[in-house]
Design a protein around this nucleic acid. Sequence first.
DNA 1: CTATATTAGCCAAATATTGTCAAGTCAAAA
DNA 2: TTTTGACTTGACAATATTTGGCTAATATAG
Lengths: 100, 100
Amino acid sequence: MKNIGDTLRELRESKGLLLREVGAELSLDPTLLSKIERNDRMPTKEQVNALSEFYEDKKNEVVIAWLSDKLVYEVQDEDLGLIAMKVAEKKIEYLKTQKS
Amino acid sequence: MKNIGDTLRELRESKGLLLREVGAELSLDPTLLSKIERNDRMPTKEQVNALSEFYEDKKNEVVIAWLSDKLVYEVQDEDLGLIAMKVAEKKIEYLKTQKS
DNA sequence: CTATATTAGCCAAATATTGTCAAGTCAAAA
DNA sequence: TTTTGACTTGACAATATTTGGCTAATATAG
């Protein structure tokens, strides 16, 4: 249940890699990656995809941290945020039954 | 568990009001309101506030429909959407304990 | 047919997000 | 103490997205 920045930073450090090394690998400006890891910037979907591929063993963890951060951001300081979240869950579950 | 457009349309029609009447009341272009009611445009927070005040007895219903729609939109066609939603819920619950 | 309500398409303006660079901090090495 | 390397910060330009509202098209009722 970590945020996307902490998740990425811990993954990178656990491999002993530098910002510029990961950046070079993914053609991502190291200063931008720095901001992402400090939750100063939200990575784009493409960046998350690249990062999750890069840390392949933790692919889902990265994507989930990112998506859930975006959701939290969407309802931050809304009184009805949590209730809306539960309603949204039901809507998604309903949409899933429709598709299949 | 309706979407924001259907919610607003039903509220307006239940009162027998026209797009231009509600629009005039809220200084909202009727063609824009039309789009909102058909889920073609997402209303802004300000517009939702105005609309929920206007339909005062259903204030929360409007806001929740809007917020939950935005959340669904955020994770639409993401395989991990539902899981991320549950994680986001926990994050919000956690943040709430922090504030108080 | 006429009048009124709603919808559709379009595009400019407003807003928000992104990427990049130069300058800054900080810690450890030399 | 100076230098070096890793990272951070702030500012700004470039892009992308969202928004408002006009005009024209379509429907619906009388």
